[in-house]
Design a protein around this nucleic acid. Sequence first.
RNA 1: GGCGACGUAGCCAAGCGGUAAGGCAAGGGUCUGCAAAACCCUUAUGCGGCGGUUCGAAUCCGCCCGUCGCCUCCA
Length: 477
Amino acid sequence: MRLHNTLSGDLEELVPSEPGRLRMYTCGPTVYNSTHIGHLRPALIADVLARHMRRKGLEVQWVSNFTDVDDRIIARAAEQGIPPSELSGRYINDYLTNMEALGIHVTRFARVTEHIPEIVEMVRVLVERGFAYPLEGDVYFRVASKADYGKLSGRALESMRPGARVDVDTRKESPLDFALWKGAKPGEPSWPSPWGPGRPGWHIECSAMSLHYLGNAFDVHGGGSDLIFPHHENEIAQSEAFTGSAPFARLWLHNAMVEVDREKMSKSLGNFVPLTDLVQSWPAGTLRHFVLATHYRKPLHFSLQALEEARRGWQRLVDARQSWREAVSDGAAGAPAGPLAEASARAARDFTAALDDDLNTPGALGQLFELVRVGNAALPNRPVAGLGQALETLEEAGEILGLWQGQGARAARDDISAHLLDLLVELRAEARSYRDWSLADRIRDRLAQVGISLEDGPEGTRWRLGEGAAPVAPARP
RNA sequence: GGCGACGUAGCCAAGCGGUAAGGCAAGGGUCUGCAAAACCCUUAUGCGGCGGUUCGAAUCCGCCCGUCGCCUCCA
């Protein structure tokens, strides 16, 4: 498959350096605040990439991180009068809970505080080789020591405006030099090091942990586009200085930002909805559909209306899957041939081709909707030739996108509630046979109030769980 | 000021040189006790603007306009 590589600016064929195994690292959150859709996007994109590659038969090793020691974590913990580890633990838990609900499974999460020795060793080597220098308990990376600094973000050293947004630290050799290690101030969490007690700077953790778990020159490194500079630029500089070889990562995958009212959603702007609120109010499949309906390199516009539209579109796919499943288990599937079988083969092929083309999830979704239209149209005339293939295609493709996430439990038909529902449907059918429309409508209306919809068809009444969505609005700064 | 991404119908969104997928919304119809769901039909001579290359451009090139991001907090 082809993916856009930020390093080259071009689409490149993704060929794992180690046959049969894809090594991937994505930057996770700095855990000082709640998880939001902006954090979901890179994780979900990597998740779909992982599912797609696994379907191709590759083993995928996906590592992500929690930056759990940082200035803001320390500051917020102090505000709240709790230890930094308690604050970071809370938000790590928040992130993991949401990822689990959304069906995103990282192979390994790495926490900075659990990899201090690797980080210290890396900094030590960088100092030893002249790429970094200690300064009053801190250690800084010497940007001037790397001739190719700026190659990821396309910047020339002299073009940057030091101090544009942050005060320049005049002690440093160059304003662009960045901290690998920060000496501890009183009361701050710290670890021993050759330069005195301190903690890692912002960028070094990703280098140390990705190299530790994945080795050098791994296949894909991903994250939000706001990390290109300085975070990923600095990761490249220090990693390649440390290993003495390039590339540190072969392909750099960056997603565009999630926006609210044409403005980036971010923790610092405060215009975000905690992901937990969304996960509680919307089906996981809806949220996945919402994010995947926009190509990862385009800005994603967040709004409740957009979410509701995503929910309706997604519901169409879920409904088709459900009615096809029922038809197949009723023995309505016909011969594995004919127009629907052909449409299924075409949809499966084009779905895969779309994902192969720079992870074109919107195009892939379009293929599924097209298949649903053809399949639904064929459904009334039984037996339905090709229905088996259509269902299989829909199931598998939906699985790669994770659209069925969380559906299993909701749709369970073998619990007490389901039996009670069947009883109500039965009683209502009796009322209908007496043409007692007011009673029939009352049952339907009351069930609708609790989120269950009844649909009368030629073969009886179907019930399904609707999705009541509680309103959730983004906070404004 | 520099670097980068992007600009397609009312909204969202594919398209990567061969004559505009798909979703949502809207209108009409079939079905239904009424609904819902489903299906059928309708909705861009047009792809930010102006030039250029080409037999042919939403797709390639140039300039301009606009939006967003980054230029040491950010996914």
